[in-house]
Design a protein around this nucleic acid. Structure first.
Lengths: 350, 350
DNA sequence: CTGAAAGCGCTTACAG
DNA sequence: CTGAAAGCGCTTACAG
């Protein structure tokens, strides 16, 4: 209430005429037995004084912060939605999620954020497949704070307790199949090399798909970040040799939308001349015209799995039990959980 | 280094052969004088032991957390970008920003988040014009934690130390002027009523604009959330009476894009039949086709102003001084700082 | 220039 | 069922 000193358990103890230990016991509903009377008095005092627990003190004393850290490259598109979902899910399990945006794939930023989070003594850390090196990461988390990766591939087990990965490779394989079935006579993957591993997985799937479904169709990989889009469109036109619909698989829906806009601006038609396939089922993919075929991402599933993995590591079995009505943990290969992506077929490829 | 007990200043003190007070002094580079020798020894020990400060302990002892809280309705669109900018800016001033997403305009969520933040003893709070009532908010922040609003209008001064608002009203006035100049013969504002005050400000500007620039042109307000878009398009077509280009001012770029898509799907043309004006200069507005005319938002300016307002309130004058090369604080009316929006003219209205 | 001591607000054995 | 006491890791007057 006062502007300058907040109410503490000492105040409550005085007001209720009990010890601070008892106040603490009552307020934390521990399994220790206590009289109705005491409970009533303490709760009343706490209420009247407008008590608000100081979590820093509690964490310090308990040596556990109930805070989890999350580092994402940014808040737009996939990562923003995922961060929101992680935050919500953490809350459901009684944890607080501290989210950091590294402003892109920046190793220095990631290092600094990791440091800050560790200084805050978070109980666990979630990171996308980091921009940092294995060695740097190992050093940083060597203090024993568990690290769970999402969309991180090929990380040694001694660094991360596990990874929860979207199966981009498989999704892209299916995307290629779809484009081929729709009659595309040439295939392009519009990559984003600076997205590191998350790009490589797509690339892998693209190549696999081509090999499997269209070994005889010319296929190319272009980096969407290196040139103006108009130029890219012209390149695809030329490289495709005018032999029929061009199939485009884009790194994500935003890249897809931009490319599509450039195509339309050049006076060509989607899906007649170009069939365009995005990834993420971003809200924009269903808001644009024509709507974009894309891969849907089960955000809440990914968030739940990541957090359950963490809680298991933290030995919070009871909280996991409470969540037993959730779908069981899928099969793991090594320490990776792979989550399938669902195609969303829309106008842009049909 | 150990997996189970992290290094404390006690360890450093032992290793360096000094007291913990000295360790603390060295590590925090206070203005107290100390010998080169001591500094060297302590730093060496800290380095070798892999010391990482426990900020909870430091905050508790110092009674200041250097943590700031931010509550936004979500991470997509404007709020995501703004949150990122706030986080970055806070860091620059030596603060940590804890961001919460309320998952929409949900009073209960906002209350809970506010509570959590207060339990963490954040030094200050940033909120958008809350979904909560004045009274509820007053109760919650009555403990003296300063509250700075962004895009919050008409809040009593005893609750918030100030507000940093985007001037949507003025922006929308200009938008109407632009649409009229481009020859629109009817005007629509596609509102989003559930966005509360941030919608009302736009509405205000729309009405003002109509009154000033097009008192004789029929104008209407439609809520984009209440009906399917196709239906809205048909309604606008009917209400406009086919007397020339229809002017649309949308709540934001996403609403604008969706409406535009529906228009195109109906076989009509943008900008010939419909001229569409968004708000936010969201990345989608320049990624779609035709590109959307919109209002640009000076994110970094808004974030800086909000944080400087807070730091001033917290008495961090020195940190503000360090930032003196920043643009000066704009004029304030009451406790409001109003930031103008810049029109970005693009294809969709020309 | 350095250190002993009190204190930040809470939790947790442990004794009663 | 309740409370005295130690302790979490750090900071900050203050004395020397």
């Amino acid at each position: 209430m006062s502007k300058h000193r907040s109410v503490t358990i000492v105040d409550i103890a005085e007001a209720a005429g009990v010890s601070i230990a008892t106040v603490s016991n009552v307020l934390n509903r521990r399994k220790v037995p206590m009289s109705e009377e005491t409970i009533r008095k303490v709760e009343k005092a706490a209420e009247e004084l407008g008590y608000r627990r100081n979590v820093m003190a509690a964490s310090l004393s308990r040596k556990k912060s109930y805070e989890l850290g999350l580092i994402v490259p940014g808040f737009i598109g996939y990562y923003g939605v995922f961060a929101e979902e992680m935050e919500r899910t953490a809350h459901r399990f009684g944890y607080h999620m501290s989210v950091f945006s590294a402003g892109g794939y920046d190793p220095d930023m990631e290092k600094r954020h990791l440091d800050v989070l560790l200084q805050r003594r978070v109980d666990g850390l979630f990171c996308h497949g980091l921009a940092m090196s294995t060695e740097t990461t190992r050093q940083i988390v060597s203090d024993g704070t568990p690290l769970v990766l999402f969309n991180g591939w090929n990380w040694p087990e001694d660094i991360a307790v596990g990874a929860v990965n979207l199966d981009f490779a498989d999704g892209c394989r299916k995307a290629v199949k779809h484009l081929v079935e729709q009659g595309c006579r040439s295939l392009f993957y519009l990559e984003r090399a600076r997205a590191h591993e998350t790009n490589k997985q797509r690339l892998l799937g693209f190549h696999d798909g081509v090999k499997q479904w269209a070994p005889d169709i010319p296929s190319f990989v272009l980096d969407g970040d290196t040139r103006p889009l108009q130029e890219l469109v012209r390149m695809t036109k030329e490289m495709s040799g005018g032999r029929g619909p061009v199939g485009i698989l884009a790194f994500d829906d935003l890249v897809a939308l931009r490319f599509m806009s450039a195509v339309l601006e050049e006076g060509m038609k989607v899906p007649e001349d170009y069939k365009i396939h995005g990834i993420n089922n971003d809200v924009i993919s269903s808001s644009c015209y024509p709507q974009l075929t894309t891969l849907d991402i089960p955000y809440s599933q990914q968030a739940q799995l990541a957090i359950r993995l963490m809680l298991a590591e933290l030995g919070e079995e009871e909280k996991l039990a409470r969540a037993s009505q959730l779908p069981p943990l899928p099969a793991r290969e090594g320490n990776e959980i792979r989550i399938p992506l669902t195609p969303m077929l829309r106008k842009s490829t049909q």
